[in-house]
């Protein structure tokens, strides 16, 4: 079985093609929208997607050495994400489905990050720590769905980090050579000073908005060195995430942790996770950077799992769902 998957929830228009036997991944082509300044403008991103979509699809088929006739189904990420961006992927997918008469498979973007992580790392029944620009979620599979044990009460970790470095003039670009500007700035702190900034963990939830406000105020007051603020902010934010993850492990009794999403690529965060895992005797599995960010392969792969469980959608009913939460998506294939 061969499935073509389309991702277009935020900054990346990606097309992946997968097969239900090794080597699984047949094609992976992406077009990433990089804003000149500021954050992602949904309309600008969607216009970029429209220009790039035909090329990305053609290249994906070509690199797999396939034609549309070889494809058994079209999977598409219908949410969660930015409306204008989602609509491009959905429109393209519906058109392909109708024109080539192929089943259309709805995929939840958050579930897809988890499924590609499980495929590549071999994790079976992990506590999932999903960290990206738009999501900060601690989840685990229980009875048919990925249930949320902890999340952010306000800003996602990635958005928090991006906003901070942008506001203090360090970005864009947000990530240079695989290192986030916040990590880079923090490493420059010689004294590794911990300033008096708020650390907020509520049960299994984190909150970053107070930290952001206080840190920006401190930088603007000129009373502290920027690198010391970066260091404190980074230590507080990462520690809070690891603390709630550790609580999630204690609560669920899971024996492995799977880090997924774009922010999972941070090597500093990863080494902190490994220190925590060693303490608790659990394994840490990290989605490699190549598949940590948004891509079409994860949508294709999750679409394949869903299709095998009979999940399809009529093209005229394939609406985008900007707030399709992780725990609202059925995962009938999820039993470990």
């Amino acid at each position: 079985m061969i499935i073509l998957g389309i991702e277009s929830t935020a900054h990346t228009f990606g097309v992946g093609i997968v097969k239900d036997e090794p080597e699984y991944i047949l094609a992976d082509v992406r077009a990433k929208y990089v804003p000149e300044k500021g954050g992602i403008h949904p309309r600008e991103a969607s216009l970029y997607f429209m220009r790039e979509a035909p090329r990305v699809i053609a290249e994906a088929l070509q690199s797999a050495g396939l034609s549309m006739n070889d494809v058994d189904g079209i999977a598409v990420a219908l949410g969660p994400g930015m409306g204008p961006c989602l609509r491009v992927g959905a429109t393209v997918a519906r058109a392909l489905s109708v024109y080539f008469n192929k089943p259309l498979i709805p995929v939840n973007h958050a579930v897809a990050h988890i499924e590609i992580g499980k495929l590549i790392t071999g994790a079976r029944d992990p506590l999932i720590v999903y960290l990206s620009g738009g999501n900060t979620i601690i989840a685990a599979f229980v009875a048919g769905r990925y249930r949320i044990f902890g999340e952010t009460l306000d800003m996602p970790l990635g958005n928090f980090m991006d906003t901070f470095v942008r506001e203090v003039g360090l970005a864009p670009p947000y990530v240079v050579k695989g290192m986030h500007q916040l990590d880079k700035c923090a490493e420059e702190s010689k004294e590794k000073k911990i300033l008096n900034l708020p650390y907020v963990v509520k049960g299994q939830d984190v909150s970053f908005s107070g930290l952001l406000t206080a840190a920006l105020r401190l930088v603007r007051s000129g009373k502290a060195k920027l690198e010391d603020v970066c260091y404190t902010v980074r230590e507080i934010a990462y520690s809070a995430i690891i603390e709630v993850s550790e609580r999630g492990l204690a609560h669920t009794g899971k024996k492995e942790v799977l880090l997924v999403g774009g922010v999972a690529a941070s090597s500093v965060l990863r080494s902190k996770f490994e220190a925590m895992a060693a303490l608790r005797g659990v394994d840490v599995k990290v989605v490699p950077p190549k598949y940590a960010g948004d891509n079409g392969v994860m949508i294709a792969w999750t679409g394949l799992l869903a299709f095998k469980h009979g999940i399809t959608v009529e093209p005229e009913r394939a609406y985008v769902r900007q707030r399709w939460k992780l725990d609202q998506a059925d995962v009938p294939w999820g039993d470990p």
Partner: peptide, 11 residues
């Protein structure tokens, strides 16, 4: 906690 900065940890 080994993953926390020692000063933050003590605090």
């Amino acid at each position: 906690k080994p993953y926390r900065d020692p000063k933050l940890d003590l605090r």
